[in-house]
């Protein structure tokens, strides 16, 4: 166990955990931020995607010990009122079916648009490729990313 200082969603917080604990479980069980999901635990499904210094990463393979002095954003901190252009586009296209993977999808899409405001189809496919949706909502995910990109420009 070790005390680790984190900056999550703009707030400084300290957790006392095994330094090897993946960020996913620190968020879910120590900070009660459960919007970041456990899907596979081996960085293959994308349900646990968060932003670290603005970059989309898989939190299930990220030891908490390397997270000090970094700016961590989860779905709960993406916006205060759920009105990020990606979130709005998600509602407009009514993307989710079961909904479990969608926070990870939204976090990946938001990171893409922050560096590539007007992505091509291929750029969207490449960026979103690691986020699995078992309900198969991929068509709407792509359409929503395009809508969010238009709203951005």
């Amino acid at each position: 166990m070790a005390a680790i200082n984190l900056n999550v969603n703009g707030k400084n917080q300290s957790v006392d955990v095994d330094p090897k604990t993946p960020m996913l479980w620190v968020l879910r069980e120590h900070l009660n931020l459960v919007g970041t999901k456990y899907g596979c635990g081996i960085a293959q499904c994308g349900a646990c995607t968060i932003h670290v210094d603005g970059v989309a990463v898989r939190s299930c393979q990220l030891p908490v010990s390397v997270m000090e002095n970094k700016s961590i954003t989860t779905i709960e901190g993406l916006t205060e009122n759920g009105d990020h252009p990606v979130q709005k586009a998600w509602l407009e296209h009514d993307v989710p079916q079961c909904g479990y993977c969608q926070t990870g999808q939204i976090m990946t899409a938001a990171a893409l648009l922050s560096t590539t405001p007007n992505p091509t189809d291929e750029e969207i496919e490449t960026a979103m490729n690691g986020n699995i949706c078992r309900c198969g909502t991929y068509l709407r995910i792509k359409a929503a990313v395009k809508t969010a990109a238009t709203a951005n420009s």
Partner: peptide
């Protein structure tokens, strides 16, 4: 549940 899903509510 669209908004709750998109904002990561439990």
């Amino acid at each position: 549940d669209g908004k709750n899903i998109a904002t990561g509510k439990p």
